[in-house]
């Protein structure tokens, strides 16, 4: 089972189990979605899966209205990048609604996120930091097949607007033999993706796998790197991060998004403020370059952190 199979199966489960769930997005009905995340669902659940016009603002407005009425819409943005057109409805309408009115708007926005070779500046963005900045939103960044499944189901069950960032690079590359559909880690808990003792890499989404790869390489040099998978960037489980830093004394915050501000800056800020005494070296960040995401595969591969650049960063961190 692949990461995108898990997303499809989670939506299948949601439609089957919860009559208040419906799916709304561009090309998601008969066509099954640009990435086939809704393949077959329109046929299996007539009147529950709808094609939307190319109107991200109105799609989100519709979701807010439906949420007010007690439905649980799941909105597919064709690419995370295009959610900028629906930004106003997400951050001003959906995110403020519960605080202002006391009426929750349970809606989920699926954002096919992150870069893939050749996708270019407008089909590659990582928007999690932008949405996490706004009060009133929950931002999920699953890195595993199991989390892709469970966090979508658990996210839809929340009464708040959920931004579900699914990484396109993981869609078909990441596989699991099967998903344990029983007990699983709830939203709000980070996970130790790889245990280690010399340094902590805090990552999320596809970067978890790059971090683990880097850790395997450094093992040959005798370094044992711990990798924390945040799972959700909001809420941010800083306790698990601090506990890891307490074990290792060193922190590298790793993200695929643009470098100014963002999740890695938040992690470093909080660890510096709350765990300064735990650090044996200045905390480090590694992000993408401060440019739009480039088109050419060679540029793209060098724009985001790679196992090589992660290893370099860790070696510098470990040398201090």
């Amino acid at each position: 089972m692949t990461y995108i199979d898990a997303i499809r199966d989670a939506q299948d489960h949601l439609l089957r189990e919860d009559p208040s769930v419906f799916l709304y997005g561009q090309d998601i009905a008969t066509f099954g979605g640009a990435f086939k995340a809704t393949k077959g669902l329109a046929e299996a659940y007539p009147g529950r899966v709808f094609d939307a016009p190319i109107s991200e603002d109105a799609m989100m407005g519709l979701a807010v209205g439906a949420g007010i009425e007690g439905m649980r819409p799941v909105i597919e943005m064709q690419f995370a990048d295009f959610s900028s057109v629906g930004f106003n409805q997400i951050v001003n309408q959906a995110a403020t609604h519960y605080y202002r009115t006391g009426v929750p708007v349970p809606l989920t926005v699926r954002l096919p996120s992150g870069g893939t070779p050749g996708s270019g500046p407008f089909h590659s963005q990582s928007m999690e930091a932008v949405y996490a900045h706004y009060p009133g939103l929950i931002v999920l960044t699953p890195a595993t097949v199991s989390d892709a499944y469970h966090m979508l189901i658990d996210g839809v069950a929340l009464d708040d607007p959920v931004i579900y960032c699914e990484h396109k690079f993981l869609y078909r590359w990441l596989k699991a033999k099967s998903i344990d559909k029983g007990e699983h880690l709830p939203i709000g808990h980070a996970r130790i993706a790889r245990a280690g003792k010399h340094a902590t890499v805090v990552a999320y989404s596809a970067m978890v796998h790059e971090a683990v790869r880097a850790a395997e390489r450094l093992l040959q040099d005798g370094w044992d790197i711990e990798v924390v998978d945040l799972r959700s960037v909001k809420p941010l489980d800083i306790d698990t991060v601090l506990a890891s830093v307490a074990r290792t004394g060193r922190l590298l915050a790793l993200g695929e998004a643009f470098p100014w501000g963002g999740v890695t800056a938040e992690v470093v800020a909080r660890v510096s403020a709350e765990g300064f005494h735990l650090l044996d070296a200045p905390p480090m960040r590694l992000n993408a370059h401060d440019t739009p995401v480039p088109y050419h595969p060679k540029l793209w591969a060098a724009h985001r952190p790679t196992p090589e650049s992660i290893c370099d960063a860790l070696r510098r961190l470990l040398a201090i």
Binding site: G47, G65, A66
Partner: peptide, 17 residues
């Protein structure tokens, strides 16, 4: 202009229900 699609969404939900 933001309320136009919100009202549409409320009606859409009622139709589904």
């Amino acid at each position: 202009g933001a309320q136009v699609s919100v009202v549409a969404g409320m009606l859409f939900a009622r139709r589904l229900k």
